[in-house]
Each structure stands twice: as C-alpha cells, then as structure tokens.
Simulated scan of single mutants.
Amino acid sequence: MKSTPYVVATLVMAMIAAGTLGAGKSAAQTEAGAERGMMPTPARYAIGHSAGFEEASRQLAEQGFEVIGYEAEGRRIEVTGLTATGHCLELKFHPSSGKETSRKRTDDCSPRRAE
C-alpha cells in the first residue's frame, strides 16, 4: 500500500501538469491589475443597437477595448483593436443587435503609416 504523502504528491503533480493548480490569480494580483486600470477581457463584447464609429468606440472603451480600425459594410460591422491585456483582435458584430458574432487574433494593430 502506498503512503499518503506519495499519493498527495502524485495528485499535485498531475494537477500542475493539467494546468489546474496555480492557474488562478491571487487577490493581490487581481487588486494590482485593478489599480493599473486593467480589466479582464470579456467573453463577448457588445456595441449596442446600430452603433456608429463614435458610439462603438465609446462602448468598447468602457469594456477595456481600444479601437484602432472600424468598418461597417452592409450586414456586418468589423472592429480591430487592442484588449486591456494587449492582445490585438478583430471583432465582428451583428449590425442590428450590436452583439459580437466572432473574434480572431490578428496582427493588424500596428500604427498605420501614411503612404
């Protein structure tokens, strides 16, 4: 029969390998992020009903997203920008509801150069 410390050590190692142990943030880390104005990236962004550029930018800024590019054509609204954690995303929104329909990481967030 195996001893209890061996079983506990095996379980801890399995949890570390699976990424379930130590993956969370401490209260101090969460407070430090809040002090710097950082907020977590929401599961889904929303821009409101039939939002134009100004309204969409304001709504997304309140959710911690910095708009770099905005494009509205027909039945789609596409926004490119940076999350509060510094990731560049391309977001697509339903034009009448303003709810996010898809997102993908991109590298189009570099400053635009005049050509």
Rank of each mutant, 00 (worst) to 15 (best):
A32G: 05
E62F: 15
A72H: 06
A61T: 10
S3T: 11
T4D: 12
T106C: 12
R113N: 04
G22P: 13
P5I: 13
T10K: 11
A51L: 05
P5R: 11
G74A: 03
F65K: 08
G24N: 07
L11Q: 10
I77W: 04
K2V: 13
R112W: 14
T10S: 09
G81D: 00
M1W: 14
P111C: 02
G24V: 08
V7S: 09
Q63S: 15
G48F: 01
T10F: 05
G86E: 02
G98I: 02
D107W: 08
R75C: 00
M38F: 04
S57D: 14
G74Y: 03
H87M: 09
V8A: 07
E100G: 00
A56C: 11
E115C: 06
L21D: 11
A17G: 06
I16W: 01
A61P: 09
Y45G: 02
R36D: 10
V79K: 05
L91P: 00
I47L: 07
V67G: 14
K104P: 01
K99R: 10
E115M: 09
S97D: 04
F93T: 01
T85K: 05
R112A: 15
I16P: 00
T83H: 01
D107V: 11
V67K: 12
F93R: 00
A56K: 01
I16D: 00
R58G: 06
H94Q: 08
E90C: 02
S26G: 13
A46S: 12
L82M: 15
R105V: 08
E35D: 11
D108G: 12
A114I: 15
L60F: 02
G37P: 03
T101M: 06
H87R: 05
R44M: 04
T83W: 01
M15C: 13
K25P: 00
A61D: 13
V12W: 08
S96C: 06
A34V: 03
I77G: 03
V8F: 12
I47H: 02
T85V: 09
G22N: 10
A9K: 01
S110F: 14
M13G: 06
T83L: 03
L11P: 02
L21E: 06
A46C: 03
R36T: 14
I16E: 03
R75N: 06
R36L: 14
G69V: 05
L82T: 04
H49C: 07
G98F: 05
V7E: 07
A28V: 07
A72P: 00
V8W: 06
G24I: 07
C88G: 09
E54D: 15
K2F: 11
V7K: 13
Y6S: 14
K92L: 01
T83C: 02
G48T: 02
G86R: 02
